[in-house]
Amino acid sequence: MFGKKKPIPQIDKDQLELIENAQKRIKQKKGLYAHFVIFLIGAIFLIVANTVLGIGKDFKILEIDWFVFAILIWLFLFVYHLFNVFVTNKFMGKDWEKAQLQKLVAKQQNRIEKLKAGLVKEETILAKSEVFKEETTKPINKGSELTIIVAAAENNAIGLGNKLIWHLSDDLKRFKALTNGHHIIMGRKTFESFPKPLPNRTHVVITRQEDYSAHAGVIVVHSLEDAIDAARKDSNPYIIGGGQIYKQAMAIADKIELTRVHENFDADTYFPEIDTNVWKETANTFHTKDETHAHEFSFITYTRK
């Protein structure tokens, strides 16, 4: 009496779509067939109406009976219908729509992947910059007087192509006199610009290259903090370049020995701006041009306030 209900057959979604498409195609073809039959009957009717019944017999267009144009227009509509059913439907039907959608999705996915890669790269750069900032701003136990020594133009230019822009004999003599017997701290590129290590000085080279090898006696470190620690027994180590090392050292140095060349030069490396709210000028000696010096310059000493 209370028998089990007959199970309702479940049709897969894809199968249902195929059935619906098949039904739609059958309907389209039936419509095309009906159009063809009506076209044939209509064409015969127009011919009979004009030639047998004499309807519009005297009406011509360009010396051609009007019913010819009517049949041609109708033929055009039939051909257009035929094209839609067998051509447009094939190339712009469901399969075509799916293919185009997949292409668009693939393009969007590609753009998303590129954006993700860009974000990851940007995050990596920001992370590195934060680490750099943290490393360069945390206090360093120097245990001695740290001096920056540099020759810079009026526009703070200090080098071009990892080379000095000028040659000032007295500046080189002053550099030798001040740094003689001391540790000189520098970046890898500055060190590699020397033909050979400078005599009677201990070279401390900062590089990010873990496997960097240098001449015997050269101390290789990987941060400014490690470089200062390596020179802790020296009462007055010197920072001699390049641009990035100078930038880091400005926050912790006690003194700046500056040779200010009184001209502007094109360069790819620059010395940081000296903030007079932080630094006090304590000595200034001016030198004019002469036979061995092509530019005017001044020896200036700054100490931290």
Rank of each mutant, 00 (worst) to 15 (best):
K133R: 08
R174P: 08
E123Q: 07
K121V: 10
I158W: 08
T136I: 05
A127L: 11
K98A: 11
K173Y: 00
P197E: 01
P195H: 03
N180Q: 11
P195I: 03
L104P: 11
P139M: 04
L198P: 06
R174E: 01
E145C: 06
A151D: 05
F175R: 01
K114T: 06
L101W: 14
K116L: 13
T190R: 05
D171F: 01
D170C: 10
L168G: 11
L119C: 15
W166K: 02
K116D: 14
L172W: 09
I185F: 02
E192K: 00
E97H: 09
R111K: 10
P199M: 04
A127T: 14
I184K: 03
A99N: 07
A151N: 06
L178A: 10
F132R: 13
K107T: 14
H183W: 04
K176Y: 00
F91P: 07
A151E: 09
L164H: 10
T124S: 15
G181P: 06
Q100P: 09
L160A: 08
N110W: 02
N156R: 01
I112A: 13
A157D: 03
F194N: 06
T179E: 02
G143M: 03
K138Y: 00
S144E: 06
N180W: 09
F91D: 02
F91Q: 03
K163L: 15
K107Y: 13
A151R: 02
N110T: 11
R111P: 06
K107L: 15
F194A: 04
D170L: 15
H167M: 01
T179I: 11
E145L: 08
N180P: 12
A99Q: 08
E122S: 08
M92C: 08
T124V: 15
D95E: 15
G181K: 00
E122P: 07
S169H: 11
A177C: 09
N110F: 12
G159R: 01
P199A: 10
L172D: 07
K163I: 13
L101M: 14
Q109G: 14
E135V: 09
L160V: 03
M92T: 05
H183C: 14
E122I: 02
K103S: 09
F191V: 04
G143W: 01
F191A: 04
Q108I: 14
K128M: 09
K107Q: 13
I140S: 00
E97T: 07
T137Y: 03
M92G: 13
K114L: 05
E113W: 12
H167S: 01
S144H: 10
Q108D: 11
F175T: 03
R111Y: 02
D170I: 15
T179S: 14
H167W: 00
N155Q: 07
R174H: 08
F132Q: 14
W166E: 12
E192C: 00
V120Q: 04
A151G: 10
A106Q: 06
N200G: 13
I185T: 03
T202G: 12
